[in-house]
Design a protein around this nucleic acid. Structure first.
Lengths: 238, 238
DNA sequence: CGTGCTCTTGAGGGTGATCAAGGATGGTGG
DNA sequence: CCACCATCCTTGATCACCCTCAAGAGCACG
């Protein structure tokens, strides 16, 4: 089942077999996209939404000088732009980080689902609200943490999310982001991210080299990040 | 119709008369709450959601030292915590700014709506996604703007939103926020907000005194704020 | 008429930006 | 296969923005 990572670790088991089948059968097409390609442009009306199957995708907005601010990073199992279904057009751009595989859902198909499967609809709704919860945490990250905390927080969040879908273990995972990418996600410059990473490395908290993240001291890193994962609404939570 | 501000300026006219009646008849109770009171606490399972009728409400998270970061400000017509319906518990606290009047909706009633009125459900879903869009803009604000831009952006956004519900005109509106509140929304300190406000005043862009905001030069203020209101999905947009 | 809170202003310090330059890496085309 | 070019990584020096600390004035409320 290629849609099998959707809501994995976040109550996927609450979906009935029929609902899982509906999700799988509603896939319009599966596409591969190369690294660093834009896949949705802000303001354009769209009539499909994409479930991320493999790889990483980011959402971002540009400032006046063309500087990017990442507003979200998506991992496999995320319904990247499901919110385009109720909204019709997006207020931001979406691009791939590494190469990705995505499944496309026609909005017409989704509309049929909302008419026939209210419980599944509520789960789809829920999944868009997870994005909002992560947005809020990012606001907190940028508003209240210093540079080290921001970077640490990002790595903590991704570790947690990737663990849920089986793509991280023992605090290790692959992440196709550069230091400038981290900077764009953290409201910092690439230069400063470099210094922060060195500092985290020298404190034996974390290494990040050749796209591989190794969290060496999870507890201490979480402390630096003021990271408390409840906002991710994982099934294993309280 | 006391629920009449819901989605006003954002496609309320797309709701049929029947849907508007359902919304109105589904109100469980109407309550008044004093200024500076917490109305929802993070982590607690809740079974009602609240539509803001009058006054202002904020959502916030605390850092380790108990410092607040506001993640949202709500104005009349906003369904403050509708996302609690699919999520069951919230990841943050909610408190009033000034005194407010709110309408409460039982989640059981909302569940009935999702079963009988798929189109209305999609509109409710949409309204929660507006919050997410504003979250994204706040991430941008904190990540890419300096102090002046952040404060200016907040005032621009509130002006736009209050205009939609008839609570702002000519760039003037009442806002029960203090300078420390603005600081908590902008990732700054109260002291620095004070300096920023003075600077904005000296540039003849804006005044903020005794809870009244007067935008003197809308265009110039929007330029400082890099404010582009498409993300608010107003009906009058392109 | 105190008692807080907010607003205001000043002085000094630290975090992270900017500017600059060299080395490493990887993709592309000859 | 190798030359070339772009991008990333790394480090140093300097500077600006915003925080911290401090203190007084204004104002609402009991």
């Amino acid at each position: 089942m290629i849609s099998g990572k959707f809501l994995l670790g976040r109550g996927r088991h609450e979906l009935s077999d029929e609902e899982q089948r509906v999700l799988e059968d509603s896939i319009g097409s599966v596409r591969q996209v190369a690294a660093r390609k834009q896949i949705v442009r802000a303001g354009v009306i769209i009539d499909t939404s994409t479930l991320l199957l493999e790889g990483f995708v980011c959402r971002y907005m540009d400032d006046r000088d063309g500087q990017r601010q990442l507003v979200a990073v998506h991992v496999p199992g995320d319904f990247v732009d499901l919110h385009a279904f109720p909204m019709r057009r997006l207020d931001h751009d979406i691009a791939t980080l590494g190469p990705v595989k995505i499944a496309c859902y026609d909005h017409q198909t989704l509309e049929t689902i909302t008419e026939r499967y209210p419980h599944l609809t509520r789960k789809l709704w829920f999944s868009t609200l997870l994005d909002a919860a992560m947005h809020r945490e990012w606001i907190f990250r940028l508003g209240r943490l210093g540079a080290e905390g921001r970077v640490a927080h990002l790595f903590c969040e991704l570790n947690e999310r990737l663990e849920m879908v089986g793509l991280a273990a023992d605090g290790r995972y692959m992440l196709p982001m550069t230091q400038p990418d981290i900077a764009e996600a953290s409201g910092l410059t690439g230069v400063h991210v470099n210094r922060v990473l060195r500092s985290l490395r020298e404190k034996n908290l974390l290494t990040f080299k050749a796209n591989e993240v190794c969290i060496l001291d999870r507890k201490a890193l979480a402390a630096v990040a003021e990271f408390e994962p409840q906002y991710l609404y994982g099934s294993n939570g309280p």
